[in-house]
């Protein structure tokens, strides 16, 4: 499904601030994989997502998604097949536009050859309403309200809906519940699992919650210094504890996992 082959990326090359954020990075994901990713601060987790989503073009290596080489595809074209969410709930939605208008924009990704001059139809609205009701937050009755009025959790749930409304080939979640209070974060995680499982979306999720990393999905990466130092799935993974994971990190890098926000339980 997804292949990163010998991808390297250096920021500010040739300056004292040069930083190799990805070094000769290779991974392969199978169709339907749900990978959780753990790593120290600055390990290059977000940079890997940026490389896949096309925020920048990588220095070398190639990126393939669903058989298509997307290494030099511009970001807005990749977003047609890649859904993405960030930690900041403000990033995924347009605050001064209504819920309905935000959903209509997300729907453009379906590439169904909409006329640029067409309006949101009643059938679209009906569909938006049904999808919103699945979130269980009562948003289906607030479709005309500007998104700026919603809480962080509601905005994040809406962003999740927008990122998956047109089923993407790949969903990238970058600590998408880290800014939410624990109750809301659980709710958004449950929604994420539901939506990903129901639509069998291939997914990668960066998290700082080690327990969550082992409970959710079918595969886990530990990352450090622009590389995956431990990649586990199947039976081996099902037996792992959080402490095992910490040991694996130490074995892989020679140092303790250093992430100030890491939750061990």
């Amino acid at each position: 499904m997804l292949d990163l082959i010998n991808v390297s990326m250096t920021f500010n090359p040739g300056t004292p601030n040069a930083k190799q954020a990805l070094s000769d990075f290779s991974v392969h994901l199978d169709d339907g994989d749900f990978v959780t990713i753990i790593g120290s601060n600055g390990a290059g987790k977000s940079t890997m997502f940026n490389a896949i989503a096309g925020t920048f073009f990588v220095d070398s290596g190639s990126i393939k998604l669903g058989g298509q080489d997307i290494t030099y595809l511009p970001e807005h074209k990749r977003s047609r097949i890649i859904g993405r969410m960030f930690q900041d709930p403000l990033k995924g939605t347009a605050p001064s536009m209504s819920i309905e208008e935000n959903l209509a924009l997300a729907y453009l990704r379906s590439g169904e050859g909409f006329s640029p001059f067409s309006h949101i139809s009643n059938r679209d609205k009906q569909e938006f309403r049904e999808k919103l009701s699945l979130l269980g937050m009562g948003l289906e009755d607030r479709m005309k309200q500007p998104v700026g009025l919603l809480s962080g959790g509601q905005r994040q749930a809406l962003t999740l809906l927008m990122a998956t409304m047109v089923t993407p080939k790949l969903l990238l979640l970058d600590e998408h519940t880290a800014a939410l209070d624990p109750g809301t974060a659980d709710k958004v995680i449950e929604l994420t699992k539901d939506i990903v499982n129901k639509n069998r979306i291939t997914c990668m999720m960066i998290t700082h919650n080690m327990k969550q990393a082992l409970e959710i999905g079918n595969r886990t990466f530990l990352m450090s210094n622009g590389k995956v130092v431990y990649d586990v799935k199947g039976e081996e993974r099902s037996k792992l504890t959080v402490n095992d994971l910490l040991d694996k990190f130490k074995a892989g890098t020679g140092q303790a996992l250093d992430n100030d926000r890491m939750l061990l339980s």
Binding site: E75, K77, M97, L105, M162
Partner: peptide, 14 residues
């Protein structure tokens, strides 16, 4: 309208 409101979201909507 979204372009002036949230550029990231515009790119994410293809």
């Amino acid at each position: 309208r979204a372009t002036g409101d949230n550029l990231d979201m515009v790119r994410a909507s293809s």
